[in-house]
Computed example of a mutant assay.
Amino acid sequence: MPVAILVINVVGAFVLGALLEALARRGPDEGRRRVVRLAVGTGFCGGFTTYSTLAVATADLLRAGAAPVALGYAIGSVLLGAVAAWAGVLVGSRS
């Protein structure tokens, strides 16, 4: 199971959740906040996370005949990412 991909995606989801919540609490999405959101959120987090690699890794597991592992990996990655984003929102709301 590609654990590194899972960890990267979960960390990226957390950072994105924290960033977006912190920016939203500081005011409307304009000016410097928009630039930060686009540069860090879309740019850094988009480049850091590897959800397309998650799809390839899942397909590789399926081709290897490990369908239950592939299904658990794909669903688990998405669920852990959602939980991490939620935790990031909680952290971002405190800043």
Rank of each mutant, 00 (worst) to 15 (best):
M1D: 08
P2H: 07
V3T: 13
V3W: 13
A4S: 15
V7A: 13
V7R: 01
I8F: 01
I8R: 13
N9P: 05
N9W: 09
V10C: 03
V11K: 01
A13M: 07
A13H: 00
A13D: 06
F14V: 08
V15N: 02
V15C: 03
G17A: 10
G17W: 02
A18N: 02
L19A: 09
L20W: 08
L20H: 02
E21S: 04
E21A: 08
A22Y: 04
L23N: 02
L23Q: 02
A24F: 11
R25C: 12
R25A: 12
R26F: 07
G27L: 03
G31A: 07
G31L: 01
R32Y: 11
R32S: 13
R32A: 14
R33W: 12
R33L: 11
R34S: 12
R34E: 09
V35G: 02
V36L: 10
R37Y: 12
L38K: 14
L38R: 15
A39F: 12
A39N: 11
G41R: 01
G41C: 04
T42L: 12
T42R: 01
T42S: 11
G43R: 05
G46K: 07
G47R: 07
F48C: 08
F48K: 07
T50K: 04
Y51N: 09
Y51W: 14
S52P: 12
S52K: 09
T53G: 09
T53E: 05
L54K: 06
L54N: 00
A55I: 04
A55P: 05
V56I: 15
T58C: 09
T58L: 09
A59D: 10
D60E: 14
D60S: 11
D60F: 11
L61Y: 06
L61A: 11
L62R: 12
R63P: 05
A64C: 12
A64P: 06
G65Q: 14
G65T: 09
G65Y: 11
A66Q: 14
A66R: 15
A67G: 13
A67Y: 06
A67W: 01
P68E: 00
V69I: 13
V69D: 09
A70H: 05
A70E: 10
L71K: 09
Y73R: 01
I75L: 15
G76Y: 11
V78I: 15
V78N: 08
V78M: 02
L79N: 08
L79W: 05
L80G: 03
L80I: 13
L80V: 10
G81A: 08
G81E: 02
G81I: 07
G81K: 01
G81C: 10
A82H: 06
V83R: 05
V83W: 01
A84I: 10
A84P: 00
A85N: 03
A85H: 00
A85Y: 02
A85C: 14
A85S: 08
W86R: 01
W86A: 13
A87I: 09
V89C: 07
L90E: 15
V91M: 11
V91Y: 08
G92H: 03
G92D: 02
G92E: 03
S93L: 05
R94W: 06
R94G: 07
S95A: 15
